[in-house]
C-alpha cells in the first residue's frame, strides 16, 4: 500500500526553465518507453471496448452484409425486457456467492498454516505444491475436471460409489448435469485452481505483521483463537476486501468454464449473461452483434454498480 501511495518520481536534474518546458522535455524522454504498452492497450483493449459500445447502438448483424443502422437504445430496451438476460445475471450472482467465500477462506487458512511452518525449505515445498494448479492454463483445467466429475471414468464418483458405497451407479450424483450441483462443482474446481495463487497474497499480508506482535500477545496469555481474531484477521482484512472485489469481477464474467464444461444450453445454470451474449453474437440467428454488445455493456454496467457499492461499504469500515 505504501508503495502505491509513494510520491511521483521526480527528475534528478531540476531546471530553471519554465514548467511547460520541463513537462515537454519529460514527455519526450519518457513516452518512447510507453509506446509498446499504449500500442497494445489502446489498440486491443480500449478500442474494442469503445467499438462494442458503438455497436451496441446499432442493429449490426454479422451474417448479412448490410451497413448497420443507428437504432439508439433499442438493443438495451430489448435486453432489459428479456427474461433470459435477468436470469443470466441471477445465475451469475448465485455462482459468485458460492464461489467467493471458498476462494478467500481456504487460501487464508492455508496461508496461516504455511506461515507457521518454521523450516524454510518445508514451507517453500508447500508453496510450490499449492501453486502447481495455478500454473496450468485454463482450458486444460476445465477438461481435466470434466473427467474428474465424469460418472464413468471420474475418480470422484469412484470413491462415492465403489469405495464409500453411499450411492450406486443409478443414483450417483451427476456433478455437471444437475442444475444446482454444477454451481458447487465449478466453484470447487476454481478453488482448487486458485488455491496457491491466493495463498501467496495472504502470505504477503502475513509477512507484513511484525513478528514481535504475536509474541507479545502470547506472553500476555492470548490463545491462538484470540490472536487470530485480535490481530491476524485485521491485518488480513485489506487483502480480503481487495480479493472480494477482484474475484467478484472475475466470477460474474466467467465464460470459458461454462463453454467447455457445459456448452450452450439455455436451461442450464451455466447459461449466464456472458453465455447469452456470446450465443447471440457468434452462434445463433443472424449473429446480432449489436444486440450482443448491448448485453455485454449492460452486464458490465451492472457489475460496475455492484463493485462501486462494494468499494463504498468497504471504505466506510476503515
Amino acid at each position: 500500500m505504501a508503495q502505491a501511495l509513494s510520491p511521483e518520481p521526480h527528475s534528478s536534474a531540476r531546471q530553471s526553465r519554465p514548467g511547460w518546458w520541463r513537462t515537454a522535455r519529460d514527455f519526450i524522454t519518457s513516452y518512447p518507453y510507453l509506446i509498446p504498452v499504449l500500442f497494445f492497450f489502446v489498440g486491443w483493449q480500449l478500442l474494442p471496448i469503445v467499438q462494442s459500445l458503438r455497436l451496441s447502438f446499432t442493429d449490426d448483424r454479422f451474417l448479412d452484409n448490410q451497413a448497420p443502422n443507428w437504432i439508439g437504445l433499442d438493443n438495451y430496451r430489448t435486453a432489459i425486457q428479456q427474461g433470459l438476460f435477468w436470469q443470466g445475471i441471477k445465475r451469475a450472482l448465485i455462482f459468485t456467492a458460492i464461489f467467493i467465500p471458498g476462494m478467500i477462506f481456504i487460501p487464508m487458512i492455508a496461508a496461516i498454516l504455511v506461515d507457521r511452518v518454521t523450516n524454510n525449505k518445508v514451507a517453500t515445498v508447500y508453496r510450490i505444491i499449492l501453486l502447481i494448479p495455478s500454473m496450468i492454463p485454463a482450458p486444460l483445467i476445465f477438461v481435466l475436471w470434466v473427467w474428474m466429475y465424469d460418472n464413468y471414468i471420474g475418480p470422484i464418483n469412484y470413491f462415492l460409489v465403489d469405495r464409500l458405497g453411499w450411492f450406486d451407479l443409478a443414483n450417483a450424483p451427476l456433478w455437471l448435469e444437475n442444475n444446482i450441483l454444477i454451481y458447487f462443482s465449478i466453484a470447487f474446481m476454481e478453488w482448487w485452481w486458485g488455491l496457491g495463487y491466493h495463498t501467496m497474497f495472504f502470505l504477503a499480508g502475513l509477512a507484513s505483521i511484525p513478528r514481535d506482535l504475536p509474541d507479545a500477545a502470547r506472553v500476555d496469555g492470548a490463545g491462538e483463537w484470540r490472536m487470530f481474531w485480535g490481530i491476524t484477521i485485521w491485518r488480513l482484512l485489506p487483502i480480503i476486501l481487495v480479493l472480494t472485489v477482484v474475484r467478484f469481477g472475475s466470477a460474474m464474467a466467467v465464460i470459458t468454464e461454462y463453454i467447455i464444461m457445459q456448452g450452450f444450453d439455455r436451461n442450464s445454470s451455466t447459461y449466464t449473461w456472458t453465455m447469452y451474449m456470446y450465443d447471440e453474437a457468434f452462434r445463433t440467428g443472424q449473429q446480432f452483434r449489436g444486440y450482443a454488445a448491448a448485453i455485454g455493456w449492460l452486464g458490465a454496467l451492472f457489475m460496475l454498480v455492484v463493485v462501486a457499492f462494494l468499494f463504498y461499504i468497504f471504505r466506510s469500515r476503515d
Partner: peptide, 25 residues
C-alpha cells in the same frame, strides 16, 4: 492517469464486453 486507466481495466469485465468490438477490429 495511465496507472489509473490500467487499474480500472482490471475491474472491468473487459474480456466479455470487448469481444464483439474486438472481432470487428
Amino acid at each position: 492517469v495511465i496507472l489509473g486507466i490500467l487499474v480500472a481495466s482490471m475491474f472491468f469485465p473487459t474480456q466479455v464486453t470487448a469481444l464483439t468490438g474486438l472481432f470487428k477490429i
